[in-house]
Design a protein around this nucleic acid. Structure first.
Lengths: 206, 206, 206, 206
DNA sequence: TATGAATGAGATTTCATTCAT
DNA sequence: AATGAATGAAATCTCATTCAT
């Protein structure tokens, strides 16, 4: 029996995979996961049907990969909130985060926010996507919890605040921001953060 | 000219439409809009194919109706935030709202939250659904703006707070809550509201 | 057992039948027999589905009736070619006939020529329509044979001409005329007859 | 840039197309265009549904191709009427033509005449088929006009005959011949030509 | 590895016809 | 006689996937 060296480099494989993934994202941003046909992905990728199936064994697997990429890309940008030397108050952290979400969307030339929306919907029917979303959310929550601890320490929040609860509430504003952007593209991180600031500003005693 | 009575009552027609809509929602909650087949809806509704198409001229039209119903049902419950005689602070308003969302889900025996998620995704591809979502969100925003004005008057918020910004930020927490519920069904209105309370509690001077 | 008198007059029945037939012809002229839906006929007739089926027991029966009407209307106009006291030469007979075909088309406000075309096609698949067409053609042929006999007698044709052959050939020009009209509505009876005249004019000896 | 050889030969594609076209013609000859189901064509062709739609993007497109083939096949045989060295009189030209139409029908083992009838009916509802018929008829007319010019020169027709009018009238006898054949398969080119001969034979002076 | 023609189950939709009223 | 809502078989077409090359 002959042991074959891989015919093409690992790097080549990775490039191909990415090519397909990018094509699929573009399609999903336009038509959603289930109105996107493999045919469309194949055309957009510039590869052949056979080639695509060499890298993803089924449409559902490709959907999972796309969902993972989109959710991960959003999540990935939210990891570095705590720079301990310079902890900002919550409204500034929120501003930084929403701004970064928009940047990610611009960086990939596909509207990643739209794909993330598709991924949430898909999580409601595919347990694998749900698990994946769960994990990403856990990561985001952990980052925000770290931030909350630091913010409490820095005196931006009450000393008795529960960092986990604060983290959950803060991070839960991001989907809303994304949805508002979809519905009204003029929605803007500054205004958005201003709302939180207003909520936190104490009422002057009457 | 002869005025003819309708052969079947308007009420009959409405009941039929509802029957189909309910069946479609149940299916959409399970499989999403585009993995739900008309066959499944027809089976679930107990009607014939022809009958379904008598009330909805295409699958896409049915999807729009379902999306509208789900988004509307959620929005509908959020209208009565301001009972002027007794304006509660934001964290309690949030608690009331998230609780009501869960109630709506229980009331309809379909998981309306899942369908709402599908509707958001659909808004990204069907302009008609986007328009519909836009309108519902405008309604919710208006209700929260009324609330914000009252809350400012009641001294729950700073006098110089912008009610519109507050409204947008507060209401934007609802999609996040729904998404968190999907990922982790133990997510709970109380804990959730506690996070906002903690965010709003002033840090004691050091 | 009770013997019932007919509830409505025979005349009423005939009017209803005609109403349906006319509606069906209009539809057939537009879309052909098999792309016309019963729904369209029902709408066009202003009656209800049930009513239509009271007069024609199936779509195929209605098609046969329409085919019969159209073919019959064309044939009916070609019966009076021989007015023995004044027998015209063939090119004038042809002119009279093609002109009359156009008149029939104008008289019914449906383009009866188009329906006749549908009927020919239908004859290729429905033996009942074939039989009907056969009969009408036999009638037309008989009329033309009478004409040929008279034309021979009147010296418009050679004394040894076979009236049956002449009749067949002359009458066979009518479908061609109708088809040419369909393709080129400027086709005109005068020009058309002129072609036959030219064919019949003897070449001068060289 | 890489020039790729086609995976399958052009010839292969053409053979497949023909396979489908032939199957469709057989079906159309039996049932007409609109009572022929795609299922029937698929079965008759021996291919799969997908394969058929790879070559014809819709039923209507297939119908157009079939109509074009049938009309074209009939028209194609009528091109070589003028052999200048030996121009025959009109009745012989007609005999040659009608005989050739029957040959075409026998050559294809489908009854092409029936399909041509379907095509005429279709021309009444599909402008694309009308255009196609228009073009074929123009071709036939041109051939007959060439013939008429030659026949006039050869002294078979009067010197002042209008070749265009003669051509139109002569060629218009073909649809009639075809329709008569449908209704009465014993209709025969010889008898048919005899009718024209009789029409052209001058009446002896009385 | 890569191709892309071919597959065929299954999706959506239509429409001739019926029948309770 | 007349209505028109309802039926459900059947039509057209799609599309995820395979496999010979």
């Amino acid at each position: 029996m002959i042991l074959r060296m891989p015919k093409v480099s690992e790097e080549h494989r990775a490039r191909r995979r990415d090519q397909i993934l990018t094509a699929a994202m573009r399609c999903a941003a336009r038509e959603g996961f289930h109105k996107t046909t493999m045919s469309a992905v194949i055309r957009e990728s510039g590869l052949s049907a056979g080639a695509v199936y060499l890298y993803f064994s089924s449409k559902q697997e490709l959907i999972r990969a796309v969902a993972g990429t989109a959710v991960g890309a959003v999540a990935g940008t939210l990891g570095a909130l705590t720079e301990p030397e310079n902890v900002v108050p919550p409204e500034q952290a929120l501003l930084a985060t929403t701004s970064r979400i928009l940047e990610v969307g611009r960086a990939h030339d596909v509207e990643i926010i739209r794909v993330a929306l598709q991924a949430w919907a898909e999580a409601a029917r595919d347990p694998a996507v749900l698990a994946l979303l769960h994990e990403e959310i856990a990561g985001i929550r952990a980052a925000w919890t770290d931030y909350a601890v630091a913010a409490i320490a820095a005196g931006h929040l009450a000393a008795d605040a529960d960092p986990v609860a604060v983290a959950r509430t803060l991070m839960s504003m991001l989907p809303g921001f994304m949805l508002l952007r979809l519905v009204d593209p003029s929605t803007d991180p500054e205004q958005y953060a201003a709302g939180l600031a207003a909520l936190r500003r104490p009422a002057s005693p009457r």
